[in-house]
Design a binder for these strands. Structure first.
Length: 222
DNA sequence: GACCAGGCACATC
DNA sequence: GATGTGCATGGT
């Protein structure tokens, strides 16, 4: 396969190599992290997950039993701790009630059906659902985040007004549905985004620099 | 002290 | 349907 997105991937991979995502020890830890990282620095999420680990709570049925105020305190470093505690509880309710706390059972369902079910949980939007499906469940579904949007829009490859599904389809229609490729691609986009494509872009030294449109990155910002 | 970070839901027009 | 706002901690 060739084409723009394959070249982008090749450049990113050549520059940065494998990113070893998702940074977690178990699928359940991926799920918890996916909720906690919403609009939040990963460093803060690590502290919160560390608290849960020390308390021996990185297991669905045990975490589901933790009283809400206690859960809030444990995840406090991740920010938005009250709403995130409720979101975790919402998701745990599905996992425990419907699948007996067994992730293997949940992930044995078809991708589309499970994706819809996750989106039905209050607090689980498209990015969180896709992160869980790809990085915890091993499903070939592409994850889109703010960096993905920025990198593509700044290069003029999509419009600044492109929505989640337009961007997701942009990738999925041009790439083979390959879990390892989707895993690495998203992680590489986050990496290049953090280094070069923040709100104030530092395009110098970016592996995609030569691919910029004439006159530098396009401007309108989110 | 301002600005930012791997979103999402909800209010209002 | 589009746009605006609340949610919160910790690092630069």
């Amino acid at each position: 396969m060739s084409g723009l997105l394959q070249e982008v991937y090749d450049r990113l991979y050549a520059a940065y190599g494998p990113q070893h995502w998702w940074p977690a020890q178990t699928p359940f830890e991926v799920i918890v992290g996916a909720v906690l990282v919403q609009n939040t620095n990963w460093k803060n999420v690590e502290r919160a997950i560390g608290n849960l680990r020390e308390a021996g709570l990185l297991e669905p049925r045990r975490l589901a039993k933790v009283p809400l105020p206690e859960l809030e305190e444990l995840i406090r470093p991740a920010g938005y701790y009250r709403i995130k505690a409720r979101r975790l509880r919402n998701l745990l309710e599905l996992i425990v009630r419907r699948y007996g706390g067994l992730l293997e059972r949940m992930f044995s369902r078809p991708l589309d059906a499970l994706r819809e079910e996750l989106l039905g949980v209050p607090g689980i939007g498209p990015e969180t659902a896709d992160s869980i499906l790809l990085y915890a469940g091993g499903f070939p579904t592409f994850v889109v985040d703010t960096y993905t949007h920025r990198v593509l829009a700044r290069h003029g490859w999509i419009g600044f007004d492109a929505d989640y599904y337009q961007i997701k389809d942009f990738f999925e229609s041009q790439l083979e549905a390959n879990v390892q490729l989707f895993n690495e691609y998203h992680a590489l986009l986050v990496r290049v985004g953090k280094l070069h494509c923040r709100r104030q872009p530092k395009c110098s030294g970016c592996p995609l620099e030569q691919m910029l449109p004439e006159g530098g990155p396009l401007e309108p910002e989110e």
